[in-house]
């Protein structure tokens, strides 16, 4: 079943407490190459049948209005994955 994958990240200027906690823990395990981490969300919208332009437009709207909170988050990627 084809899927539309939506990636949502906190806006760059918004504090990301989770990323901050993870970046603090990485060096303790010897992972020292990552000065910054930001954590996001990935959604997979399953589509019954072909992903038409109209369906994609719906996904975009859903991503902007419901899957993300435009006050603090950006939709950074929407892509169609066919399996």
């Amino acid at each position: 079943m084809p899927r539309i994958v939506v990636d949502v990240m906190l806006k760059p200027e918004i504090l990301d407490p989770q990323g901050k906690a993870i970046v603090g823990a990485l060096p303790r395990l010897g992972f020292t190459a990552f000065p910054s981490v930001r954590q996001g969300k990935r959604f997979e919208l399953f589509v019954d049948g072909e992903v038409t332009e109209e369906i994609l437009a719906q996904a975009r709207e859903a991503a902007e209005t419901m899957l993300s909170n435009p006050v603090i988050e950006d939709v950074v990627n929407i892509e169609v994955v066919a399996d």
Partner: peptide
């Protein structure tokens, strides 16, 4: 660790 990442995931180390 705020339950960030997953609950217990950072403390475990």
């Amino acid at each position: 660790y705020g339950d960030y990442l997953r609950a217990g995931a950072i403390s475990r180390f």
